[in-house]
Nucleic acid binder design. Sequence first.
DNA 1: TTTAAATCCGACTAAATTAGTAAGGTATTA
DNA 2: TAATACCTTACTAATTTAGTCGGATTTAAA
Lengths: 135, 135
Amino acid sequence: MKVSQRTEYGIRAMISLARHYDDGPSSIKEIATGEGIPGAFLEQIMAELRRGGIVESQRGVNGGYMLSKSPNETSVGTVVEILEGSLSPARCESDCSKMPDCSTRTVLKKIEESITKTLDNIYLDELLKVGVHEE
Amino acid sequence: MKVSQRTEYGIRAMISLARHYDDGPSSIKEIATGEGIPGAFLEQIMAELRRGGIVESQRGVNGGYMLSKSPNETSVGTVVEILEGSLSPARCESDCSKMPDCSTRTVLKKIEESITKTLDNIYLDELLKVGVHEE
DNA sequence: TTTAAATCCGACTAAATTAGTAAGGTATTA
DNA sequence: TAATACCTTACTAATTTAGTCGGATTTAAA
Ligand code: FES
Ligand code: FES
């Protein structure tokens, strides 16, 4: 049930973009050095976030990434959903033909609802207000 | 953020024990064949649940495992906590000296609270009432 | 028009984790 | 004393994760 390093990097990067929302695009290199994330790895992550539609990219000199919407319209739930594939902790699809009477289904569904409700209501701008760290 | 196969097996086994709460101990073999879980693997899982204190074992002929408390006193949260080590999705300890200004901390903490609150309020007997499967 | 900065893309590798097996020991009861 | 069933540790194979690398493409600036 741990979140992957990939996802944690992704969240950090998104918060970084939120912090510099008015400063034009941030390059991979800027984000990577600022957040202590391996550049080539972050490159993959940003590409996935772009395909997910929550960031946009500008190629070439002075290019980089920027949020598609403003920080108070971008929820952490979306970020995690894109990077983890889904917010559900279940190992199987919803139809689950192989084990149709799996008794943990109910439990996993409740966990998912709980996580979704929580994450969909946290927006990037809130994370900035609180301060970068623990709170 | 997927739950491990190990944990899913564990939950299923616990529900099985709850179902047969009044029938005396269930052996590994009985649970394993009933739930379609590899026996030698389940053996490890049950041992861990026993060390966690939520099941008790009886060795020797006619032995097996049984719940330490009644199904309506055993929460799924405890089961998952024992098998996954913790309910927190964070990758690092709470003090986190290596990256003290990690901006995802706040998020991960909220996820944990959310999961804890949810799972600690689901008890094994509820899962029986609903029916074994989807609901 | 050339050059440098940057995203883009796919393939690859190494490390870590997970799932599962195997073997032998120990307690209990019939 | 024989059978049953838990107990423990060690091992292996498969999968996933984290991260690297090389090169192609786009773009703005010099
Ligand atoms: S087999 Fe689908 S949730 Fe367990
Ligand atoms: S480094 Fe501790 S939560 Fe990210």
